[in-house]
Nucleic acid binder design. Structure first.
Lengths: 141, 141
DNA sequence: CGGGATCCGGCTTGATACTG
DNA sequence: CAGTATCAAGCCGGATCCCG
């Protein structure tokens, strides 16, 4: 990653800013970019959405997050856990049992994400209409 | 894409649901997934963020969205325009002048996205701390 | 200035198989 | 059950050249 010759060092990356300024910081390749990626990823968003509905075990999640492979679920879960959005509780029983749940921060993030998704879902008819208009305009070229 | 043998046809994909139910719909591979991807993409989020601050021409955007290539900016802009989030106004002058701005829907989406980003930025210290804890726990394995 | 077309490398993803 | 290891494929994104 990292552009060809641009400055990779990020100066004021730890400032606690409000939304407007926060975006400027975000725009300069801060760690929050990575976290956003984990959150909005194909599997990240679905996993957060699933965990927003409760606590689940690994294979329960696999069934809920339709189409995810073991590897990707594991990878996604680790990334979210590392970011402090998901808590993992393993019980040393036999057979092993591991539960995954959102942390308080994870719940906040999930709610915002779900809000964004909900907005898109609700306006999807407008989006679809826009797409048709766009495609139609291009077709007659 | 699409899993090995699963049903690709999505039945109730046009329902206008509220956030909770909307997610279920979203989870089944609806078009909104594509739009979310355009929005949260590496360049999509930065472009929406830049356009949230005003109307800009192509090369102005290039300078604002630091590090983006012509191709990716063009591609991002087209995707967002097709989704009805960005409006493109070309003036047939010489030299050509093209302005990009958010549509009302685009502004709504951008605001939610910026909210999510802002939340992450504000809590980044907690995220960073969680990452250190996670890495430390793994190191002594 | 505002892009389109093309080529190509690398990260991401997905099957599959194996382990504790 | 709860994962990790390995390998191949595919798509994303960047560099480059080109045109109106």
């Amino acid at each position: 990653m990292a552009k060809q010759g641009g400055p990779q060092e990020v100066p004021g990356c730890g400032t606690e800013a409000r939304t407007e300024e926060a975006f400027d910081v975000f725009a300069r390749s801060c760690p929050s970019r990575d976290t956003l990626k984990h959150v909005t990823d194909r599997w990240g968003s679905l996993t957060l959405g699933a965990l927003h509905q409760g606590t689940f075990r690994f294979n329960e999640l696999r069934r809920r997050v339709d189409g995810v492979s073991e590897k990707m679920l594991s990878q996604t879960l680790h990334a979210l856990e590392r970011d402090g959005l998901v808590r993992r509780e393993a019980q040393p029983t036999n057979p092993p049992r591991v539960d995954y749940a959102l942390t308080p921060l994870g719940r906040e993030v999930a709610e915002r994400l779900l809000g964004l998704i909900g907005l898109l879902e609700n306006r999807m008819s407008a989006v679809l209409a826009a797409q048709e208009r766009y495609d139609a305009a291009r077709a007659e070229a």
